[in-house]
Structure formats: structure tokens, C-alpha cells
Design a protein around this nucleic acid. Structure first.
Lengths: 345, 345
DNA sequence: GTGAAAGCGCTAACAG
DNA sequence: CTGTTAGCGCTTTCAC
């Protein structure tokens, strides 16, 4: 009958006994929002007793009673992708400031994501931040149906069903393209990200629009199978093969830093120099891309801010706020380094 | 009296009604370790009802009853330091496989760590993994006193009070030093990590021992204020200043990749070439150090394995295992690249 | 301003 | 094998 106590912890009842009051009084005294109902003397004695005994309210009990665990879930596809750690940091900072905890789970594939969300539902997280939504992610209707408050980060929901925090992909591409045009590049190609993720599509469209604005045509577009170095190298090879002799691009705008570094590999293998023969730009400004050879010109985004803004959206929703569904678009910044010709001079 | 249900969820009682059995029967049927006590017919009907209703056991209730939340905490100093994401990934993979969740919290300073652990205690995590212990970390006695199962990762407890998973820092330094000696380096210096963290001390000792084994003396040792690029650059400058004219080191073994990259900066600023004038080695094999100029010779560690081994230690302890306190030392591997002379040829 | 009492959803002893 | 029963520690009506 008696459950094994994980350790003999002090409960609200112990505090009540020590302070010679009823447990409900202790409960009130220790809740900032109801503290005012308590007389000063009683308040002081309860607080004293609590401190003296080292009382820590049992959140599991409070969760059972109130239905809120003060915990939010975060789904990331891959922590070793360097955009996610700062996002997580931002989310966690925001959560910690409110006394919430963050449960992180990896969900590389959508199929796993479903199972993870189900476990999170069982764990009764108060909400989730999804950092890995694909286009038309089946997780989104599932989250909505289960009425679990959710916010997307880094990838928007095109159908506008959930709030999201994202970078301005079109502007990012325009910054890159305009920089290349201004530095005399004329044959600009694009290594697009996977077209099943929103950023892959948006950046590609941004690239095409930026060239159209300048009344030019792309010198080629190749789609990467993933946001990875290998996929970038492969796509670059495809592009080089398509554009034999003379028609070779003099610049390639990459959808992502890893893709750009893959392009480095393929260009080198083809005997081409960067930026003398071909300029390259990336996207994300990952750590150390300023130390590669040549230092990568890229787009910087405030990833940490992505995280805490997303968490703020979520907490707004948790606070019962109407919190209309909204997408926050954060501004990218071009960081010019040595991988684009005409800029190092 | 009635708590607001976060949403009108289906409880074990609903399943019991649907299957025409008692709740305790449902509880048993749904627990793998007690399923065997149930007849096949009843089992089938309970499982059918549970599936049909979309039943998810409320972990908060189970946590209150059993005292176990199926949740472990992880404290990291800084997720943007690239050693931690793979460690977290390893921990999370191990936890997920057991149906546990991972709460991540950042605790850059020990003072914050204390507060975080107190919140985790309130949240009733079943155990914690500390990825940020300093030497004589006050958190360690605190964890022991609070009887919260804990395991260290990446940094050992020199007093041997808690289990830990670490790399073999002495061997790592020996691999680096021996490689340099074999490739003809004679004046080998060390940029040591901060001496208040265990790895800083161990790597420094390993460096000194490796040279002693070869009957040589260090060409200089400078301590970095932190494991950062700036601190590495600063320490390198100090080293260069100490060893003016002729006595300059021909190789510098760095306690960490970031420190090594800082050394790159300072060496370049001093007009020295890598590796022609000075060879440099790092430690950790961070992403992209193979792409910097020149590619960094460094020590690779199985960080993901650090994580899941640490988690395994923790789950062993949670399983009530005697789990004697033990330190698992994982083997480092030298990765030779272009930053060490004589190796590229 | 404080106490009494009920119950969140689950598990575990005990009885049959 | 299954049902009964008693709480885990907290919050929240309802009284006074």
C-alpha cells in the first residue's frame, strides 16, 4: 500500500505541522498569486518553516492536481546541426526564467516525431516547440487535434495553422544575390535545399526572385537531397556537369553553410579555385565557417532569438492568451568574407 | 474543487469501463512487467479498449504514486560548445529507448547549477547527468546529500564520489606528443586548459608525462583562461613573448580545438606559418576543423558514446543496482591532418 | 484570513 | 487471475 518514497522528502504537511497551520494555508502562502490572502504573521511563520525544513513542492502532485507540469517539449531533428543548439539555448533560457523545464527529444523522421509527441502527451507537457517541421508535416494536424499548444521554429507552417519564428529566407537570398551582382558576378547559380522543407522552397524562390528583380536568369539550379556537405558536393557536381565549357557559373548561392562547404569540395575536385573561378555563399553562419579556406561569405541569423521568441509565443498561448496564430520573421544579415570575389579587396 | 483538465483526456477508468474490468486490471494489463498476470482474453479486450479510446497513461499521476517521473535531468554549461550536442544526443537516445525523457538545463556557473538542481529536485527527476563539473564542484556533495542519483560526463570526479565517463586525457596527449616527436619536432609547447576543470589538469599532466617519457622538457606551457579561441590566442601570445629569438617552439599541443584555432590567430598575427614554422594540434575534432586552413591535426573522442554510456550508468543506478561508483575511460584517437609538419608529405 | 474535505489518475498491498 | 481499497502530495471549492 505504501509507495516507496524516492527519498524521505519533506511535504507540505510537514511544513503545516511545523508552522501550526493547515496544509491549505501553506499552499496559499507559498503561491505568489494567492499569498495576499494570508496574514503577515502566518506568512512569515510558514515561510520560515518551509525554509528551515528545506521544503520543495512536489511538482508531480501539483501537476496531477492542476493538469500543468511546467514543462515544455522541444523536438529537434539533429542536435549536431549547429543551428539547433542556439535555438535550444534560447528556448531554455526563456523557460527557465518562468520556472519551466525543457524536455528535448530527437526526431529525425516524421514517423518518429509522432511517437515522441505521443510520449510527450503522456508526460503531460504543457506545450511543444517543433524545430523540425517539414512541408505538410503530418505532426501539425496531429498536434492541433490533440489540442497541445505548439509553436514552430526555423520552419514556418505554410498553411498558417501554428505560430512560427523564422528567418526571412527571401531577403537572405536577395542579400546574397545583390552582393554578387554588385561585385560583378553575372552567371549566378543556386544549390537549393531539399524541396520538402519550407526553407528549401523559400530560399529557392527568394533566389529566383532576386535575379528576376535584376532582370537576370539563374545560371543553373540544383537541388540537394539534404542539408549536408555530401549532398552539397553532389549537387555541385551535377551543376558543373550540366554547364560544361564556358557556360560555367561564376558564383553559386548555397541554401546552407554545409551545402556551401560541400560545394567547396566539388569545386576543388574539379580543379576550380574559390573565389577566383567561382564565388560561393552560404546561409546560417555556423561556427568556424570564418576559419575555413577561404572564409565563407554567408547569411547570419539570430538563432538564439529564434528560440526565445518561439518560447514566448508558446508561453503566451499557455497563459490562455488569445494569442492569434502569427509568424515572426527575423531579419538576416549578410556577412562578407573571402569566398566571394571582389569583396576581399 | 474540480481542477481544469488540460484537455478532456481519457483515463484508466474509461478504459476499465469500456473493457468491463476494474481499473487495477487495466493498470496491470498495460504494464509489461505485470502483463503476465492477466488472462489472454482480458488482456486483448483491455488493449483493444485502450487503443480504441486512444488512452495515454497520465505520467503525472503515476509519478505521484510511484515517486518516479521517468525523467532525467542534464546540466550542460553551454550547448553551443560542440562537444555537448553529441553527448546530449547519446544521453537522449539511451533515455528514449527506455521510455525516459531528458530535461536539459544550462548552468554555465556553479552558482546557477545549484539553483537548477533544486528545481530539478522539485520536479522529481529520477537522476541527473552533469556535463559541467569543475574540480571540487560544490554541486557534487550537494547531489550526494540530496540522494539524487548522478553521473558525470566529460569530466571526472577526482575524489571518486560519482561515476563518470571521460576520455583518456593522458593518452590523448601522449598520442599528440609522440606524433610530433616522430615527425621531427623538438621544441614542443602546451597551451593548457583552465586548471580549475579536471580536463585542463589531466591534459597538462599527460603532456608533461609524455615528454618525460621521451626524456624531453616542455618548450613552454601557458594556461588559457577558458576553452575558447580568444583565450587560446592570448595564451599563444604569452608563449611567444616568453620564448623570444631562436627559442621559439616548433610545435604546440593545445588542450582543445578552439584553443588551437586561437593559436592559429596569434601565430598568424606574429607572421608565423602553420605548419612550416610551428605545428599545432587540437583536441575534440570539432565539426569543420577538417576544413580550416590548415586542416587541424587533433584528437577524436566518441562523444556520443560518452552520452549513452553515462546514461547507462545512471539507469543502472536507478534500477537499484549496486552499481559501484566507477569511471569509464574511453579511448581517444589521433587524427592527422595538415597542421602538423611532416605529416602531410 | 483560515480550516475541512474532496479528489486529480494512478499503483500496490491484500483478499478472494 | 481479478477486484477492493487506500492513498501519493497537492490545490481548490466551500464553510466559518
Amino acid at each position: 500500500m505504501k509507495p516507496v518514497p524516492s527519498s524521505p522528502r519533506v511535504t507540505i504537511r510537514d511544513v503545516a505541522n511545523a508552522a501550526n497551520v493547515h496544509v491549505s494555508t501553506v499552499s496559499r502562502a507559498l503561491d505568489p498569486s494567492r499569498r495576499s490572502l494570508i496574514s503577515d504573521e502566518v506568512l512569515a511563520s510558514v515561510e520560515g518553516a518551509a525554509r528551515r525544513l528545506g521544503y520543495q513542492p512536489n511538482r508531480a502532485a501539483s501537476a496531477l492536481r492542476t493538469g500543468r507540469t511546467r514543462t515544455i517539449g522541444v523536438l529537434v531533428p539533429d542536435m549536431t546541426n549547429s543551428v539547433f543548439p542556439p535555438i535550444l539555448q534560447g528556448i531554455e533560457a526563456s523557460a527557465a526564467a518562468r520556472g519551466y523545464f525543457v524536455m528535448v527529444a530527437h526526431a529525425a523522421e516524421a514517423s518518429i516525431g509522432r511517437a515522441v509527441v505521443e510520449r510527450m502527451l503522456a508526460q503531460r507537457v504543457d506545450g511543444v516547440v517543433l524545430a523540425n517541421a517539414t512541408r505538410d508535416d503530418p505532426l501539425i494536424p496531429f498536434l492541433i487535434a490533440s489540442r497541445l499548444p505548439a509553436v514552430l521554429v526555423n520552419r514556418a507552417d505554410e498553411a498558417g495553422r501554428l505560430s512560427a519564428v523564422v528567418g526571412d529566407d527571401r531577403l537572405a537570398m536577395k542579400l546574397a544575390v545583390d552582393h554578387l551582382l554588385q561585385t560583378g558576378h553575372r552567371r549566378i547559380a543556386h544549390l537549393a535545399g531539399p524541396q520538402n522543407v519550407p526553407t528549401g522552397v523559400a530560399r529557392r524562390q527568394g533566389f529566383e526572385q532576386a535575379l528576376k528583380d535584376a532582370k537576370r536568369k539563374p545560371a543553373g539550379i540544383a537541388e540537394c537531397a539534404a542539408y549536408s556537405r555530401e549532398a552539397g558536393a553532389e549537387a555541385m557536381r551535377v551543376l558543373l556537369q550540366q554547364q560544361q565549357r564556358g557556360a560555367r557559373p561564376d558564383a553559386v548561392v548555397c541554401s546552407n553553410d554545409l551545402v556551401a562547404l560541400g560545394a567547396y569540395d566539388a569545386l576543388r575536385a574539379a580543379g576550380l579555385r574559390i573565389p577566383d573561378d567561382v564565388s560561393v555563399t552560404g546561409h546560417n553562419d555556423m561556427p568556424l565557417v570564418d576559419m575555413v579556406d577561404p572564409p565563407l561569405t554567408t547569411i547570419r541569423l539570430p538563432h538564439r532569438e529564434f528560440g526565445w521568441r518561439a518560447a514566448e509565443f508558446l508561453f503566451e498561448a499557455l497563459g490562455g492568451g488569445e494569442g492569434s496564430v502569427s509568424t515572426l520573421v527575423l531579419r538576416p544579415e549578410l556577412v562578407v568574407r573571402g569566398s566571394t570575389r571582389g569583396s576581399a579587396c
